[in-house]
Design a binder for these strands. Structure first.
Lengths: 131, 131
DNA sequence: TCCATTGGTATCAAAAAGGACACTATAGCT
DNA sequence: AGCTATAGTGTCCTTTTTGATACCAATGGA
């Protein structure tokens, strides 16, 4: 997908749309940002399974595609705020429908004694601070 | 995505929905089937860039997820028809919106003398028969 | 002085996805 | 006898994605 896009042209509208928001992380990020501006680590806490690296990468791509805005504050410790761009905002109905569809049509598979994916200690530290 | 699903549970509706239709091939297959039943090689001709193997794999997953129906005719040469299931049909609005969004918001990047991805000779043979 | 915090990078390794290519059976046509 | 068409499968290999882990700077607080 990515590759296609950057390799010069996008043949199909479906592909184009999915390329921009059709992945787990991107859809989730955009969905979270529907509620408003978020800082980097806020997003991280909202998405416990994404690694810092992945989150960064996905945010960069979303920014490059013009879906989100990135505002850096010259402070210490650093502060960076992410928000939807106007273009990103146009995805709102689609994202909500997608969410709705998933909720309606997918029977929640119970974790049935699932062994908890086991995040690293660093991740755990971060997660603690989400109340 | 796939892995997540089959690893037991799906945490998030967005993820669940995307898992089922949020990939290049799956979305395209489903979109094509909106127009009606298609045979295997019809789909292939409609999607010149997918390999036979990929098409098979994606169709199998869609079937396993209950999004499409597969009807085998005991004939020679073989005949297999694919169509949307009732569940798959519920994706229609979503697919059309997705398509619409892509068409509206993504500026078509011109192939600008693109060197034609060069499909194998076998593929070319198949493609010839699409008028 | 040491630790925590923030928003990242860099590097290496593993896993998943995707593509190329060869091969199958059977009937009909030439 | 040889070719075509259909709907695949199997194997191997490459590309892409993802994950784990370590590291960074500067400041404030204990």
């Amino acid at each position: 997908m990515r590759k296609q896009r950057h390799q010069a042209y996008t043949c199909c509208p479906l592909e184009a749309a999915l390329d921009v928001m059709g992945s787990k992380w991107k859809a989730t990020i955009l969905f979270r940002l529907l509620d408003g501006t978020r800082r980097f680590n806020e997003l991280r806490r909202l998405m416990p399974n994404v690694t810092q690296r992945m989150l960064t990468l996905q945010l960069r791509e979303l920014e490059a595609d013009g879906m989100i805005l990135r505002k850096v504050f010259a402070e210490v410790p650093p502060k960076v705020e992410y928000s939807l761009s106007d273009l990103g905002r146009t995805l709102e109905p689609l994202l909500r429908e997608l969410y709705q569809w998933g909720q309606t049509h997918i029977q929640r598979k119970q974790p049935e004694a699932s062994p908890e994916p086991a995040s690293s200690s660093i991740e755990k530290k971060i997660l603690r601070s989400s109340n």
